[in-house]
Design a protein around this nucleic acid. Sequence first.
RNA 1: GCGGUAGUAGCUCAGAUGGUAGAGCAUCAGCUUCCCAAGCUGAGGGUCGUGGGUUCGAUCCCCAUUUACCGCUCCA
Length: 506
Amino acid sequence: MATNEDLFKKIISHAKEYGFVFPSSEIYDGLSAVYDYGPFGVELKNNIREYWWKSMVQYHENIVGIDAAIFMHPTVWKASGHVDAFSDPMIDNKDSKKRYRADVLIEDHIQKIEDKIQKEVDKAKQRFGETFDEKMYRETNPRVVENQGKIDSIKKRFYSSFGNNDLDDVKLLIEELGIVCPVSGTKNWTDVRQFNLMFSTQMGSVNEDANMIYLRPETAQGIFVNFLNVMKTARLKPPFGIAQTGKAFRNEIVARQFLFRMREFEQMEMQFFVKPGEEMEWYEYWKAERMKWHTSLGIPASKYRFHNHDKLAHYANAAADIEFEFPIGFKELEGIHSRTDFDLGSHQKFSGKKLQFFDQEKNEGYVPYVIETSIGLDRTFLAVLSHAYKEEKLEDGTERVVLGIPAILAPIKVAVLPLIKKDGLPEKAREIMDKLKYEFRCFYEEKDTIGRRYRRMDAIGTPYCITIDHQTLQDNTVTIRDRDTMLQDRIPMDAIPEIVRKKLTI
RNA sequence: GCGGUAGUAGCUCAGAUGGUAGAGCAUCAGCUUCCCAAGCUGAGGGUCGUGGGUUCGAUCCCCAUUUACCGCUCCA
């Protein structure tokens, strides 16, 4: 029995060996945490994207799509909060060589003081019983008041120095508070350094007034800045949604775990604009709707779970992840966030343009609230792949590796295989191939024994193999082999499209 | 980014106390004509991750670098 880590490694090698995923620039040793999709990988990826797009845009009359550029006006990232919030101040302990987020160290320190207060309060509560007035106690007990004052001044100091980008003062604060490394127990700290998670480049001539441009760290902003254009031209009114798929870039300090955390990745996002006050209803609606989408792929519901956020991002008033059980454990696949009017409101402020919907009935305008569904395409790819990967021991003692990819996502839908490459069988097979290839992604192969070709198709997850044998020449029947059962049926060749089509409906 | 481990053919690996490398599978060509991988014959493919140093000579020793894995850290 392979451990899960082994399984994950096997999936990675399988992905490479069968042309799904390659390390980027591999002949130059690769580039850390960047991957390329191969001939079968790109088919699977495209199919997932298309399946998502159809279920969002095509099946919802009030959702439309856009494709925004990766480059955006620099102010977008000020308005979104990314320039300020998207960078972490890091500090290293020179003795233990451990690295920490400076703000987390300070938060932990604050938490310790808060714990102290809580202990005090709990003790008092026990002492006074029913009559205990916690609020009053907190305001009057000298020790509690003193500690609370400490917390407030630390917070004030931290926010002001961090806000002013005065990292030296953040370090000073850490030293003054006497914060020690939990591992080494020493106060031997390096300077605080900022790691901006956004990639940047210059637009225009580098010599002349070069403008710093960021590669978008999320696709969402492309939707928000187009809110007015889309609402007007598509003549929409809330509730309505805008969907987009595309690349995003994050300069992660640690990017690892194959496709799971990459520096360049693809998101599939939909921002749903609603009337303020109705956002929680829609939040719940989209949580349920998105979970339905995942399970519609035939992957068992037990592989998924919700994870509700306790700590919310600066823009959200509710947030949940849909997590998938990868071989490396349950990990985030999709986020459903209630983003309030943070983004539109902020862009309204920074741009000076009114980003509102005007309600004719009430004769007043409002900034819509936003429910976001944001799913990682590469992560979904990895989820599908890792769930599909199976090693089977067959009755005859041989083993086979099969990808049980849902037929609708399979890179190749039909393999057309002449039993042998003479006696006119290849010609007949070509004839069938030509009839099928305009509707389905097909694969023709006449090399090697038939059994070996079946196994190759199993390894890339092809749901059906059509075999042309001598009988085909007599009566135009072929055998159709099912990937999962390995069973074959003899059918008239004209019946192939209908059978395949049926398999592709969900 | 820090610490640890590792990098030999597409894959899985072998190898010598330093004398410029081998197997199986895979790939390609031909034979075989077969319904569930590994039949026969032949061929191609590696400056032993990269760069530098020590040495008469380095894939092997030393340094740097890069990539992957594990741990820490991080994931708005």
